[in-house]
């Protein structure tokens, strides 16, 4: 009996250690989440302004129409998958991959080719296992993702769009609904959704361009795509931290419950051992007296 209670005590200690780790991870994730959310807020103005400018461009009558705004048949599709570098964040990445796989399957059934660009180590590992035509990959973005680290993958996709190797570009990432909820979503980047014309003046107007319409609009479109991708990566980072915080909180709570249960079992075993010892002593004494 003493062996059983000792074993239980060992288990309690090991779970307590695990609980300490999950508790620490929860607190780290909570602190990082706050910072990630601040960063997410900080990128919003850029994306908002980009959309506003694009809305203006859509209501103008430019002499040059950018190919990214022209709808075409989607036969060669690029998908940019944004995942986290690390695990232990609940179902965050797997839910996103499931959404991607469904979408890719639907596209392939429609006769389209799909090429992938991956951001984050988890996406790389997943698609390495299941296969996929991966043309670009970026990992180790850290907690504060920098635009520089994303430019390579974006450039690969944009080059393929320019060469006609792709005719549509989508982005898959998690949407930050609130701390408790993250939602996987797939958004279309190219052809750009016709931005709503902000002002419906019947006046015919166009910009004065410097150096010329093509250069200026090309740069604007490039910045637009980069801005949206960067925004999605920053949002995904916030999702990662909050998902990890929740997952670790659950783990800590569960560990607490298991410890309670084991403690009960331990007390019972200890009590049983004591009772047994007493009865042994009593019966021993009775035998001597008798």
């Amino acid at each position: 009996m003493a062996g059983a209670s000792k074993e239980i005590r060992g288990k309690i200690n090991s779970i307590k250690n695990t609980q300490k780790i999950t508790k620490a991870m929860e607190m780290v994730a909570a602190a990082k989440m706050r910072r990630a959310q601040t960063r997410m807020e900080a990128t919003r103005p850029y994306v908002d302004k980009l959309k506003r400018v694009l809305g203006h461009v859509a209501s103008a009558h430019p002499e040059y129409k950018h190919p990214y705004t022209q709808a075409s048949e989607e036969k060669k599709i690029g998908l940019l998958v944004i995942s986290s570098d690390r695990g232990l964040c609940g179902g965050l990445n797997n839910n996103l991959f499931r959404r991607c796989i469904q979408q890719i399957k639907a596209w392939q059934e429609g006769g389209a080719e799909v090429k992938l660009a991956l951001i984050g180590r988890k996406a790389e590992t997943f698609f390495k296992h299941v296969g996929g035509d991966v043309v670009a990959s970026a990992v180790d973005l850290g907690d504060a993702p920098h635009l520089e680290d994303l430019l390579g993958s974006i450039r690969v996709m944009l080059d393929m769009l320019d060469n006609g190797e792709l005719d549509a570009l989508y982005i898959a990432s998690n949407e930050f609904v609130n701390t408790m909820t993250q939602k996987p979503k797939i958004e279309q980047l190219v052809p750009a959704q016709p931005a709503e014309a902000t002002e419906k003046k019947p006046v015919y107007w166009d910009y004065i361009y410097e150096p010329d319409a093509k250069t200026a609009l090309d740069m604007l479109m490039k910045r637009y795509i980069e801005g949206l991708v960067y925004g999605a990566v920053v949002e995904n980072a916030a999702c990662e931290q909050s998902a990890r915080m929740i997952a670790m909180k659950n783990a800590t709570d569960n560990a607490g419950k298991i410890i309670k249960e084991l403690q009960l079992a331990y007390n019972k075993a200890r009590q049983a051992a004591i009772t047994q010892e007493i009865s042994e002593i009593v019966s021993g004494a009775a035998a001597i007296e008798g």
Binding site: A117, L118, V134, V135, A136, S137, A138, V139, L151, G152, S153, R155, V156, D159
Partner: peptide, 8 residues
């Protein structure tokens, strides 16, 4: 871009 391709 080259780096991203190689990495992939």
């Amino acid at each position: 871009a080259l780096e991203a391709k190689q990495r992939a």
